[in-house]
Design a protein around this nucleic acid. Structure first.
Length: 586
DNA sequence: TGGGCCCGCGCC
DNA sequence: AAAGGGCGCGGGCCCA
């Protein structure tokens, strides 16, 4: 059964079964109670334009739904998937009231990014009762009725079912929609954050918090050392241009101020400069200002953007949760009576490549716990480190350095795996799309990319034109090479997390559980996902339930492998730790 | 003053 | 040691 939810303007909402069931017209304020009742009675798939329009309000009221279909995210996948290209020909396109997906909007410089549309200041209310998404102001946009939503849902399912591997596409749409729910839940629950521990880390590294507009003590000391060593008494270390000039004037032959270049020179200014840059990074990215802005009430509430990148990996639109430096992870700590179940899919991308390519030798290497070790045992390379570098090079398209040198050895040992990524690279170089296992397709290169190629093919093309075009083609080929692996790995991770979400909701909670009061009414007694980073997640779980949660995490990983690859002989082992603090994992 | 670009660096 | 793919973010800086 499906039930659609549509805004009708002026704070009212229509909720109903478009296939002939009852339809309710109500104040938006009354929505959570109705959804809770219908969810309990029918366990429907909820059909809505955009999960971000509804989930925050429901979660704030303590109401969760098991399944939804996010028309915006699924519409974006179907609009670009080559798997349904033929079926699209005979069908109407996306309706005007359906905004583009986040990755599409980001790629289109003329339109504001969807992420920024949804973005809000961290202290703002978690939802706005009237218009949380400004789709109403888009040209040609209007409020879709529940019949509009149902018709678009039908169109999307018909497109998916027209694909040769319709099951894969259906799975992708379900996983993407589950991801949208999880992204909303991650924000509402928040990542448990120990402010005092974070401040301790900052003070140890930087010294006491400085007055507004002042630099921390340790940074001032290091700046003085650098200025002395460079004999540049007024140098501003934060200005790349000024710093580069001062370095060169002191005889240090770098052409950028990047750390890897600086490290190659022996000069008394280098050590304090590198130390300064490390501290400056900590201060600006995760210092006191970040803490004040993003950690409220003992929770980091980052703004995840499901489907925010071309490959299907998520993005964030604030809070920087995808780049929490290891130095501050000790501040992630469970509430009293609760634990963190931290799980990481080890060597996910090479395993995905082995399974995707059905390369028997590489799959055999991916059957054990340590794929890199198995590649050494196969005699392909001499050390684990070489195996890792060679695999990264194969997936990223390295051509130089150690990595580029090792790739041919990998190609001899695992020809099918190498052929898969090489084919993807060739397609990209020719300007064609490539697709993941479940059917998400890469974007087309930009108009300027095509211009470059056209110029190189013109009769009066110069050597420079040809060189530029070749470089651009190879760049895009590296992108498509990586796309198939990164994107399929993202699909594995989505399926893993979606399965886990369902399993966590089914774990019975004993009455003895201490509430995690800062996690909101939907999660205060339930184990719940609080962090997700590409191939790693954290569940905040009552102590009494950590064993059940760990089992759920493992079962979901195994199930994700089977859903994507059937009985392919590749395993997806997890590194799983139960802990109070994320620091103990790093 | 604000937008957009580059740089450098944090994460995977 | 970096390299090669995907990101976000803050600071400097240029320009209107």
């Amino acid at each position: 059964m499906r039930i659609a939810i549509a805004a009708t303007g002026a704070g009212r909402v229509t909720v109903g079964d478009p296939d002939g069931g009852s339809v309710h017209d109500l104040e938006r304020h009354d929505l959570p109670a109705l959804v809770a009742r219908l969810e309990a009675e029918h366990a429907p798939r909820w059909i809505w334009r955009d999960t971000r329009e509804w989930a925050p309000q429901l979660l704030a009221a303590g109401v969760r739904v098991a399944r939804c279909h996010d028309l915006r995210l699924c519409g974006a996948i179907l609009a670009s998937s080559t798997v349904v290209a033929e079926a699209r020909e005979g069908m109407p396109g996306r309706p005007a009231w359906l905004p583009p997906g986040p990755a599409e909007a980001a790629a289109d410089a003329s339109a504001p990014a969807a992420a920024s549309v949804a973005a809000h200041a961290p202290h703002a209310a978690l939802f706005e009762l009237d218009e949380p998404v400004d789709a109403g102001s888009r040209e040609g946009a209007r409020h879709p009725s529940i019949d509009d939503l149902a018709a678009e849902h039908d169109r999307q399912l018909a497109l998916a079912d027209a694909a040769e591997r319709s099951g894969a596409l259906r799975l992708l749409l379900a996983a993407e929609s589950a991801g949208a729910l999880i992204a909303a839940e991650l924000r509402v629950a928040g990542l448990p954050w120990d402010r005092a521990e974070h401040e301790r880390v900052l003070e140890e590294a930087l010294g006491p918090r400085p007055a507004a507009g002042r630099k921390p003590h340790r940074m001032e000391e290091l700046s003085a050392l650098v200025r002395d060593a460079l004999e540049a008494p007024t140098l501003n270390l934060d200005s790349h241009a000024d710093l580069l000039r001062a370095l060169r004037a002191a005889g240090i032959g770098v052409d950028s101020t990047a750390r890897w270049q600086l490290r190659e020179h022996d000069h008394p200014a280098i050590a304090p400069l590198l130390a300064y840059k490390k501290l400056a990074r900590l201060l600006s990215a995760n210092g006191w200002a970040w803490l004040d802005e993003w950690v409220v009430g003992g929770r980091l509430r980052a703004d995840y953007v499901a489907g925010g990148t071309a490959t299907g990996r998520w993005a964030t639109a604030g809070g920087g949760a995808l780049q929490l430096p290891k130095a501050v992870r000790g501040a992630v700590s469970a509430d009293d009576g609760w634990s963190l179940v931290v799980a990481d899919a080890s060597q996910l991308e090479p395993r995905v490549l082995a399974a995707l390519a059905r390369d028997p030798a590489m799959a055999a290497a991916g059957r054990g716990r340590d794929m890199y070790g198995a590649i050494v045992d196969d005699g392909v390379v001499a050390t684990r480190d070489e195996a890792k570098v060679a695999l990264l090079g194969a997936m990223y398209g390295a051509t130089t350095g150690d990595s580029g040198r090792l790739v041919p050895r990998l190609a001899r040992a695992y020809p099918r795996a190498m052929a898969l990524v090489d084919d993807a690279a060739r397609a990209g170089e020719a300007g064609r799309r490539v697709s993941t296992l479940l059917g998400r397709s890469s974007p087309l290169p930009s108009a300027s990319w095509h211009d470059l190629q056209a110029r190189a093919n013109a009769v009066d093309a110069t050597a420079v034109d040809e060189r530029r075009a070749r470089a651009a083609a190879r760049d895009w080929g590296r992108f498509t090479r990586n796309f198939v692996v990164q994107g399929t790995a993202a699909e594995w991770a989505l399926c893993w997390m979606a399965g886990l979400r369902a399993r966590l909701a089914a774990i019975p909670v004993p009455p003895s559980v201490t509430p995690a009061t800062a996690s909101g009414p939907a999660f205060e007694r339930m184990p719940h996902v609080v962090y997700f980073l590409h191939d790693e997640l954290i569940v905040h779980a009552p102590d009494a339930l950590v064993d059940a949660v760990a089992s759920a995490v493992r079962e979901s990983a195994a199930e994700a492998g089977t859903m994507l690859f059937g009985e392919a002989p590749v395993e997806f082992p997890l590194d799983l730790v139960v802990t109070r603090s994320y620091a103990s994992v790093v």
